[in-house]
């Protein structure tokens, strides 16, 4: 009987194992294969050594990804905390509003930021005219002291690193809010009461109980924002212009235009390892029990 049921459970599990092998293990194996071979199929380290050229791009990608993740965290944590502590109806509405943009196509969302941020766009022109006005007033005031400001230079929003980070934060913010919100919501209220009971004021409860207990949510949010941010190419292409090329863009070029699958694969392979290291460090330092959901 026992043997039969294990056979049955294996049979039920089989499609998923096949799926995992075909769509997860095989592709990773292929990436590794291409990364360490040349056009003839012979084993080589030349792709790997070529990667050194892209060190700056790697660093920039990780830097911008990190920046976007930290900004997302700063926005998401208080928001998640407030939502989790508000009434049931308000919670539903707020979560709905946060999820709503995600129902729209990712490319479309990024594209619309392009129009908002462009030089002739509404936002930029308004900002420019307002700041030029202020600039003029300041200049006049300084003039009476015999000093002068530099001539006004119009603000550029599109095609800057700032725009890329904005695009990342905008697109991936819900992935930060959701896990933190869930963790705070599920927190045992009696723990908070116990902390108050033992002498914690509101701030101390937050610091000693809420923050440490919500760390698993922060870590999964961190992962879910950091990984797509580091490897994105569309956001940097549309909002970063030619000045901000990320590693995702390079990989895309290798496959789409340069037709150098081997270099593309090796770049992907290294990126994968770098992300893995970043997350391992993050997990190590946030939670020893390993209760983190990646």
């Amino acid at each position: 009987m026992g043997k039969k049921s294990t056979l049955l459970s294996r049979l039920i599990g089989a499609p998923y194992i096949v799926w995992a092998v075909i769509f997860i293990l095989v592709p990773i194996g292929m990436v590794a294969y291409y990364a360490f071979t040349d056009v003839t199929g012979a084993f080589t380290f030349s792709n790997m050594s070529e990667i050194a050229k892209y060190t700056d791009t790697f660093l920039l990608s990780i830097w911008l990804g990190l920046l976007a993740t930290v900004i997302s965290l700063i926005i998401a944590y208080p928001l998640a905390y407030i939502i989790a502590n508000s009434g049931e109806n308000r919670q539903k509405i707020m979560m709905m509003l946060i999820m709503l943009p995600m129902w729209m196509n990712f490319l479309l969302r990024t594209y619309s930021w392009m129009t908002i941020l462009e030089d002739n766009g509404f936002l930029t022109t308004t900002l420019n005219s307002v700041s030029e006005e202020i600039w003029g007033i300041l200049n006049e005031a300084l003039h009476s002291f015999g000093k002068e400001l530099k001539p006004f230079e119009p603000i550029h929003l599109i095609n800057t690193r700032g725009a890329v980070v904005l695009g990342m934060v905008y697109n991936f913010l819900p992935y930060m809010i959701l896990p933190i919100y869930t963790v705070i919501l599920k927190m045992d209220r009696s723990l908070i009461e116990a902390a108050q009971d033992l002498g914690c004021n509101k701030f101390q409860v937050f610091k000693n109980i809420t923050v440490p207990l919500s760390l698993p949510g922060v870590v999964s949010g961190f992962t879910m924002v950091f990984v797509p941010s580091v490897s994105t190419f569309y956001i940097s292409q549309k909002l970063g212009g030619t000045g901000t090329t990320l590693i995702g863009d390079i990989i895309e070029t290798q496959f789409q235009t340069a037709n150098n699958f081997h270099l593309g694969a090796s770049l992907s392979f290294v990126l994968m390892i770098l992300i893995f290291i970043c997350l391992a460090v993050m997990n190590k330092f946030s939670d020893e029990d390993g209760e983190v959901i990646i």
């Binding site: 045992d188 009696s190 723990l191 009461e193 116990a194 902390a195 108050q196 009971d197 033992l198 002498g199 914690c200 004021n201 109980i209």
Partner: peptide, 17 residues
């Protein structure tokens, strides 16, 4: 507020941290 009262509670489910 509770944190200023000189009394402490044992909770139903203990509420250990």
């Amino acid at each position: 507020p509770p944190h200023k009262r000189q009394l402490n509670t044992i909770f139903q489910r203990y509420a250990l941290f």
